[in-house]
Structures are given as C-alpha cells and as structure tokens.
Amino acid sequence: MAVPQPVGVLPEIHAECRDLVRNFGGIAGGHVIEAMGPITLEIRRGEFFSVIGPSGCGKSTFMDVLAGLTPPTSGTVTFEGLPVRGTVPDGVGAVFQEDASLPWLNVWDNVAFSLRHDGTDPAEIKRRVDEAVAFMGLRQFAKAYPNQLSGGMRQRTCIARTMVMRPRMILLDEPFAALDAQTRLLMGDELLRLWRETGATVVLITHALDEAVMLSDRIGAMSARPGRFLDIVETGWPRERDSSILARAEVGAVSSRLWGVLREESQKALDQSGRLAAAREGS
C-alpha cells in the first residue's frame, strides 16, 4: 500500500505532459483534425487521476499518447523522467474501452498472455496469474472462455492481464462504458481496491461524472475538441474509500463545480457533431 504524502513535501511527478498536441489527417494537403491540446499536466506518483470531458474531446487520444500507443504531433510526454514517443514504456499498463479479451484463450491463459511473451519464468507466471485471477474474483472461471462470461467479467480478465505485469502506472480508457450502472459501481470498488493494494498511479478516462467523482483524488475536466484541461479539481477523499462515498455531501459540491465547466463544453461538442453531420449530408 502506498504511503500518504507527508505535509510540506511536494508529491513526486510520475508522468508529465508538456504542450502536448495530437492532430490527425493532413496527409498530402488533406484536412487536419485537431484532436487535442495543447496539454500541460503533471500526474503524481500513486494518485488516482480521472479525465472527464464531452464525447469526442480527445480523451482516448490523450490516453493513447500517454501510453505510448500513438506519438504526439508536438510536445513531450515523460514517464518516470524518460520520454515516451509511440512505444509503450516498461511499467505502463492499459485497459481499453472495447473488449480486449482474446476469445481463443481461456481466462487463465488470457491473464498469462503478456507474461508468456515477456520471458517470465513459468513458476512465476503461475504464481502471478493465480494471484491476479483470485484478486479479480475469477478463480471459478479460470477455465472459462470469454464468450462464456459477462461483459464485467471479461473486463476484469483484461484488468487482471494488465495487473500481472505489475505496472507502476495503469491507464484505463472508459473500461466500464459497456456495463450497467450497478455493475459499474461494483467495478469501481474493485478498481479502488486494486489501486490501494498495488500502489500504482491510475489514470482513468471516463465520460461519467459520478464515476470520476467517486473514484478520484484529482479530476481533470477537458474542453470540447481539441481537448485541453479547463479545470483540475482536487477531491480530498481519503485513500480508504468505496462507492458509499457517493452519499457524502461534498460529492455534490465537486460534481457541481465540474458540471459548471463541462456543461458549456458538452453543448459545444454537440454543436460540433451536429455541424459534422450536416457537412456529411451536404457533401
């Protein structure tokens, strides 16, 4: 478990973005789409940081650039002081919005997948996979295939696959988007437990305001495309927390502050998508 930061000591920077911009298109004089940026952000070691913003604002692009899955157009990303540019650095794990479980492997083999390609000793693989499968409550389903599992269980399998790599920073791109509201709350509790017990830095991309408020130490609210951080809200929640925190009065204040920023941006995003649809119809 991570140790809380003593008063007066500056928190350690785990990942850092400086003037980060990511555009798409523009090849051979084509139209350039400005997906996000410029973004300058410091992510502290061991914190739970959520990114919230309207649809299409570049949240997922931000995660891809941060993870090293795609290079930035300009600006820099560093993880543990080293530059990240289009290659996933050692110590970074990610869980995607889409179901990324591998249908040809059972749960146990899905979880072991990354370790088997990492040259890890078989005995160590068994120990770590058994531990992760048990931690995510999948022991009974270890021999089941993804098509025999619910959406929540498949996502837990993907989280376990990331967990066995022992990442120091976990990036999650709307991992519970396809789940119902109750399952999302329960999965949120699981995620908090994972965060506490691993001590990893967690960056969660979400479009659900309540989810961001319940889970995070800090929440970054993004503008409509091209996404930039308009406000970063510190929640001040205790490290030991779960979904019951939603009953606290302060939750309303945090939500209200974020909604104040997001409301206008969500309207802008709606207008942008409406204009895009009209342009498509017109062309």
Binding site: A67, L69, V88, S114, H117
Partner: peptide, 22 residues
Amino acid sequence: PAIYARVARLHRLSARDRVLHM
C-alpha cells in the same frame, strides 16, 4: 479487429509473436 493490434502494441509483442500469437 483493431483492438488486437492495440493489445499487441501494448504488450510490446515482437513481429514474430504478433503473427504467431495474435
């Protein structure tokens, strides 16, 4: 599905492993 290519990149699979195991 594009997600498999993302998983392969995430786990830094070699070109050989990408073909054989993904």
